[in-house]
Write a protein that binds this DNA or RNA. Structure first.
Lengths: 233, 233
DNA sequence: CGAACCCTTGATACGCTTCAACAAGAGTGG
DNA sequence: CCACTCTTGTTGAAGCGTATCAAGGGTTCG
């Protein structure tokens, strides 16, 4: 257990790059940033701790500053069924708070993590005087919509192999031809909406076909063209 | 063919209830509405006409005023694969335009339809002077995110029967215990991400179990409790 | 050392798709 | 009017894709 077993709400300063990552380019002015800083509060979560549950009244825009937080639903038997993993710094939920109603999902820290919480009431006030902030928030929400649209599309019209190929290619553009898994394979499987067993079989299958090379948590892409063909064909 | 074979861009006035439906409550002021009216342009689409295609640069927020427009992707062979049907008055795409990049999906009129287009550049200007509009847009986007989150969740953790039960119950709350299909069954199937054949079998199955009664395009729910049990269990 | 994970592998089962055939309207033209 | 075709929904048989269950190997850690 960490020293921070009880989630504490402290007004710690959040580093600038975090804001840049959340609000995108062009950067908001230092003026607005200061106001945001005053509004924001941070919360430390121990691994396994719950950030919020489905249905809980959403008063804050929530972001992950550092660490990994999983989004999903609690199963019937208290068990947590992971659907998506969010690595900081990134928004965790910018949609629920704008609407009267609760969070749509449950969030649970997969590692020790630091959360950033922005009371939506305060943000509403700020938006009135800082149009640029409104623009950044609209863009962030729009990006979320695009991502989710892509995810739904993939789920509806691609099989597991195609989804895996798509995921590998997306990761490769960030890093290079070597994809180093930052997550457990079971978390990757959850993101792809398949079981760990199926993921294992698919990786073996792609390896046998000579498209990739798997060594533990490091995957080397050997045949980009074939992978792209798989992903989009 | 209709009289409007060529999509025409005319600055027709859009009725008030449409704006109310798009922007939600509390209503924006008449002042802002007038400015929006000046900004907006409408486009008539014949059945089958294409509103926009995937990748096309998105300059407008797009809404359906009346009629039905399908969102999906063009298959390999020019064929259109339907993923979601949008009935007017409702937003068709409020996310793509905010981001540098194109539309995420293709949109095609399923019936004769009227589109409303708002140039995002103009909306950006308006947002600076009308904070209430910004708030309404944020809410609309947030609602879209919630809907998509729900959709992805359903796809990942519910089988076809559960999704159908969920859909029936959702429709029933709007209308009553009789659900009258406004769409072809194949469109419903597409929304549920199943084939028409499977939908037919599922309906028969639920009918045999005495949970519903199907007569053509009208479905009567006979056992709400059992359906809810199916949907959420 | 055993315990607790994580990943793998195999056998089997189930859900859904695909393909093919067919019935029931709706529109069309002889 | 009938024959024709087009569309929509239904039904059946077969097959693919993925989940589930069970077992075993590799680590890490107490």
């Amino acid at each position: 257990m960490d020293t921070a077993t009880a989630p504490t709400a402290v007004s710690t300063s959040v580093p600038f790059p975090v804001w840049a990552s959340l609000l995108g380019q062009p950067a908001v002015s230092g003026d607005e940033l200061l106001a945001l800083q005053r509004l924001a509060s941070t919360r430390r979560l121990a691994a396994g701790a719950t950030a919020f549950v489905r249905g809980q009244v959403a008063l804050n825009l929530v972001a992950v500053v550092s660490g990994v937080v999983g989004l999903g639903t609690r199963g019937d038997d208290q068990l947590f069924h992971l659907e998506r993993a969010v690595h900081g710094p990134q928004w965790l939920d910018i949609s629920s708070a704008w609407i009267c109603g609760g969070y749509a999902q449950q969030a649970q820290a997969l590692s020790a993590a630091v959360l950033l919480e922005l009371p939506v009431a305060g943000v509403r006030q700020m938006v009135k005087q800082h149009p640029l902030l409104a623009d950044r928030l609209l863009q962030a929400l729009a990006q979320t919509v695009q991502n989710l649209t892509g995810a739904t599309h993939d789920l509806m019209s691609k099989d597991a192999q195609k989804r895996l190929a798509t995921w590998l290619l997306q990761r490769s553009t960030d890093v290079g031809l070597d994809v180093a898994l930052k997550e457990r394979k079971r978390e990757l499987a959850a993101q792809l909406a398949i079981t760990p067993e199926t993921l294992s079989r698919l990786l073996r299958q792609l390896m046998s076909a000579g498209l990739i090379e798997v060594r533990g948590y490091s995957i080397k892409l050997l045949n980009l063209a074939a992978l792209q063909n798989l992903a989009h064909g």
